[in-house]
Simulated scan of single mutants.
Amino acid sequence: MLSTYSPVTDGCDSSSLTLFTNSRGFEALDPGTDEDWTITTFLSTTGQGVAVTEDDQQTQGTYILGAVADGSDGGRLTVFGSSSLLSGQVISQNPSLVNQTLFLNALTATFDDTSTMSIPSKSLETTYNTIQNPGLWSTTYLIILPVGILLCGFVFWLKRRKL
């Protein structure tokens, strides 16, 4: 579940899609006597999230996948539960994900004089001008048009030859 009240999720709504593969969920611990830190969760699982341990034990619950810890001295720590946040394979196969937006917002949330403007890259692949369903057009251009030109040329040649 994506929380929309965090500066990290600016530009995202609660229905935005994220994909973290092999994510490590974690739980926020009570800071105890050290009340200098404030933990804000911006990405978590639903109540049906399952943690699988190395012993193949499965524990169902709500787990945090992304959080921000703000210190009273101005320090800030942003934690994501997966290293696949910016995986090229994940982003290229699912272009509608907001993973890049989350990452850019996490980088610039602390700075007041920056914005998360990014210019998408231009594809350098060669694009071909092709007709998807040629059907009648291919018959026209490959058979009827060349035969018609040959017939007109042959008729013109015959008329000139008889004169």
Score class of each variant (00 low, 15 high):
48 Q>Y: 12
123 S>I: 03
96 S>T: 07
19 L>G: 05
19 L>D: 07
82 S>Y: 00
123 S>C: 05
73 D>A: 12
17 L>R: 15
120 P>T: 04
73 D>E: 13
45 T>P: 10
80 F>C: 05
64 I>N: 05
47 G>H: 04
46 T>Y: 02
103 F>D: 04
25 G>P: 02
74 G>P: 09
114 T>D: 06
86 L>S: 08
71 G>P: 00
87 S>H: 11
101 T>W: 01
17 L>D: 14
49 G>Y: 04
15 S>P: 05
56 D>I: 02
71 G>R: 11
22 N>I: 00
85 L>F: 02
89 Q>W: 08
109 A>L: 12
105 N>I: 03
115 S>H: 15
119 I>G: 05
68 V>F: 03
80 F>Q: 13
20 F>R: 00
99 N>P: 07
23 S>A: 14
73 D>P: 00
22 N>A: 04
45 T>W: 07
31 P>Q: 10
93 Q>H: 06
51 A>M: 02
22 N>T: 02
22 N>D: 10
28 A>G: 07
112 D>G: 03
34 D>V: 09
121 S>C: 09
44 S>R: 08
38 T>R: 08
92 S>P: 01
50 V>C: 08
126 T>P: 04
83 S>I: 07
75 G>K: 09
76 R>C: 13
103 F>L: 13
116 T>M: 04
98 V>E: 15
21 T>L: 10
29 L>I: 09
38 T>M: 05
39 I>Q: 12
117 M>N: 15
51 A>W: 02
65 L>M: 13
16 S>P: 01
57 Q>E: 14
80 F>R: 07
26 F>S: 05
55 D>H: 07
31 P>R: 10
86 L>Q: 04
29 L>V: 05
47 G>S: 13
114 T>F: 12
114 T>E: 13
26 F>I: 01
65 L>I: 04
91 I>W: 01
102 L>R: 09
96 S>K: 14
67 A>I: 06
39 I>W: 13
48 Q>R: 10
123 S>Y: 04
51 A>Y: 02
29 L>N: 13
51 A>H: 02
45 T>K: 03
70 D>Q: 11
85 L>E: 11
17 L>A: 15
88 G>L: 11
33 T>K: 06
41 T>C: 11
83 S>L: 06
